[in-house]
Amino acid sequence: MSDGRAPLATLREAPWIVSIAFAASLLAIWQLGAAMGRLPEYILGPADIVAATFDQIHRGELLDRVIPSLRRALSGFAIGASIGVVLGLLAGVSRPFRELFDLTQAFTHPIPKIALFPAVAIVLGFTDPARILIIAIAAFFPAYLNALNGALGVNPGLVWVGRNIGASRVRIFLQVVLPASLPRTVVGLRISLMVSFIMMVATELVGHSDGLGAGLMDAYLEAEYGEMYAGILAVAVCGVLANAILLLVSRRLLSWQGAGGTGHD
């Protein structure tokens, strides 16, 4: 191997170096621009953002926003996704059940659920139940559809084995269909969780509220840019953490899949 190519080949073995270098240089350019005062006043540099975030954490304001937001997102997710998984699996194994839901689901699924929020808020007010209801409805669909397709896609041979062995319908559902559709169900849960977080921010941006989304909007209106960036950072961290936790749990649950993994980004 020639000398000229050697460093590149080494880099190729360890692409994370490039990843970090790229991210770091982006941050550096951003910081430099901010320090030189070349950027508009509402674009803070990374260092200022971190400082503002720590300031917010220190004063306890950030936590006061994170807690109600997370409560809404997670309870909406728990309600919507669990109903979705149960109904989806049932629809997957029962044809009449599936047919009964089919058209209703096809017509309601494409509605952007956030569009329901103003109408729901008229009845329930801009309250937690209204927000949780919207988040739950939005989280329901990906969970339902993926559990349904998971159950439909179960290798029929596995079910035949259960019938051959003389296992009851309930046992086949619990010990064959449920685990066999788990990979797909987990994919649905991850989408549901992402949707829940989008709906969390969306429902908080609108109307009078506490929480992260409302905090962002208030900070924007009052030109409190440090606060605004701290809020954005908090939303990002919540989203990444929740996804990482769910990913970790699903890896544990699906460890039997072998080297292939779930194969899903």
Binding site: F197, M217, Y220, M228, A242
Partner: peptide
């Protein structure tokens, strides 16, 4: 950034 609701950037 995929799992982050980008809507949070809307004020910006």
């Amino acid at each position: 950034a995929y799992p982050v609701p980008k809507l949070a950037l809307y004020p910006l």
